[in-house]
C-alpha cells in the first residue's frame, strides 16, 4: 500500500497528470450525472427549442428541443462506454496474440503478424465505411461498435508486445527461469507480464482516445450508432446536420466540440505522463539530466 501511495504522489508531481486526472474525473462525474437526468435522452421536443444558455438550461437547448447539458451527460457516458469496451477488448486480444506469437514463434507467429499487418495497412476509414454501410443494423448498439473498433486496433499493440517478448526471450533470466523448471505458460505469465503491463496500460489510454475519435467520425458520416442515442459523435453530427451555425445556436455545436477536445487532451496527457513515469529513460530527460 505504501508503494501505491508513493506512486500516486510521484505521478501527481507531473502537472499534466494532475490536470488530466481532474478533467477525467469531472467528465466521469458528468457521465454519472446522466443517471439523474430529468429528461429522456432520446425523446425530442421536450423543452423549448433553441434557447441560449440560461439558469434553467445551463448549456442552452438544441433545435430539437433537448437540454444540451443533460444530453451532454449521456453523450459523455456513452462515448466513454464505447471507448472502454474497445480498449478493453483490443488489449486482451493484443496481449494474447502478442504473448503467444512472441513466445511461440514459427508459423503461428507469422500468420498472426500478417493478419495484424493487413489490418494496419488498410486505410481504416474506408474499411470501416464499407463495413458500417453493410452492417448498419447491427452497428446500432454501442457494444457492437466497440467490438468492431477493437478488431482494428489490436494489431499495433500486439506487435509491440510481441517485440518486447522477443527481446525478453533472449535475456538470461529467461534461461534461468527455464532451468528452474518453469513451464512456458507460467513463465510468460509470471515473468513477462510485469514487463508488458506498462505498455499495455499506455496503449489502453491511447486506444480510448482513438476509439472516441473514430466514433465521432463515423457518426459524422451517419454510420455507426443509432443517431438518436446521444454520444459526443451523434451530438456533433446532429448539430452540424441541423445547421447549428447558421441558426446561430453556437452552444449546441460548441458543447460536444469542447467536450471532445477536453477528453482528448486529458487522455493524451494522462498517457504521456504515465508512460514517461514508467519508462525511466524518458523520465531522465524530463528532469533535464540529459544535458
Amino acid at each position: 500500500m505504501r508503494k501505491a501511495r508513493g506512486l500516486f504522489y510521484d505521478l501527481f508531481r507531473d502537472h499534466r497528470f494532475a490536470v488530466a486526472i481532474v478533467v477525467l474525473l469531472s467528465l466521469l462525474f458528468l457521465a454519472l450525472l446522466s443517471f439523474f437526468s430529468p429528461y429522456h435522452p432520446q425523446r425530442m421536443y421536450q423543452v423549448a427549442r433553441g434557447c441560449p444558455p440560461s439558469w434553467e438550461h445551463i448549456l442552452g437547448t438544441s433545435w430539437l428541443g433537448q437540454d444540451v447539458f443533460w444530453q451532454l451527460t449521456f453523450a459523455v457516458r456513452n462515448s466513454l462506454i464505447v471507448a472502454f469496451v474497445t480498449s478493453a477488448i483490443s488489449r486482451v486480444i493484443a496481449l494474447f496474440v502478442g504473448m503467444g506469437a512472441g513466445y511461440r514463434g514459427g508459423t503461428p507467429d507469422r500468420v498472426l503478424m500478417t493478419i495484424g499487418d493487413t489490418t494496419m495497412v488498410l486505410p481504416l476509414l474506408v474499411v470501416l465505411v464499407v463495413i458500417s454501410t453493410i452492417l448498419r443494423e447491427w452497428l446500432r448498439y454501442l457494444s457492437n461498435l466497440g467490438l468492431l473498433l477493437a478488431f482494428f486496433s489490436w494489431a499495433w499493440d500486439a506487435r509491440v508486445i510481441r517485440s518486447q517478448i522477443l527481446s525478453l526471450r533472449e535475456r538470461e533470466f529467461t534461461f534461468v527461469a527455464v532451468l528452474s523448471g518453469m513451464r512456458t505458460m507460467r513463465l510468460v505469465w509470471k515473468q513477462y507480464l510485469p514487463h508488458i503491463l506498462p505498455i499495455a496500460l499506455t496503449t489502453f489510454i491511447n486506444n480510448m482516445s482513438w476509439a472516441i475519435g473514430m466514433e465521432i467520425t463515423l457518426a459524422y458520416l451517419g454510420l455507426g450508432i443509432d443517431p438518436t442515442v446521444p454520444t459526443i459523435g451523434t451530438m456533433l453530427q446532429a448539430a452540424i446536420y441541423r445547421q447549428a451555425l447558421f441558426l446561430g445556436l453556437w452552444w449546441w455545436l460548441l458543447t460536444p466540440i469542447v467536450a471532445a477536445i477536453l477528453l482528448f487532451i486529458a487522455l493524451y496527457w494522462l498517457s504521456v505522463s504515465v508512460s514517461e513515469y514508467l519508462d525511466p529513460r524518458a523520465r531522465f530527460q524530463r528532469v533535464g539530466l540529459g544535458r
Binding site: 451555425l245 466540440i257 482528448f264 487532451i265 493524451y268 504521456v272
Partner: peptide
C-alpha cells in the same frame, strides 16, 4: 503541441472551419 496533438483531424477541421470561415 501538447494541446494540439491529441485532437483528431475531424475536430481540427471543424475548428478551422468555425474559426476561419465563420
Amino acid at each position: 503541441v501538447m494541446v494540439m496533438r491529441p485532437i483528431p483531424y475531424y475536430i481540427m477541421a471543424l475548428l478551422c472551419l468555425i474559426v476561419f470561415a465563420y
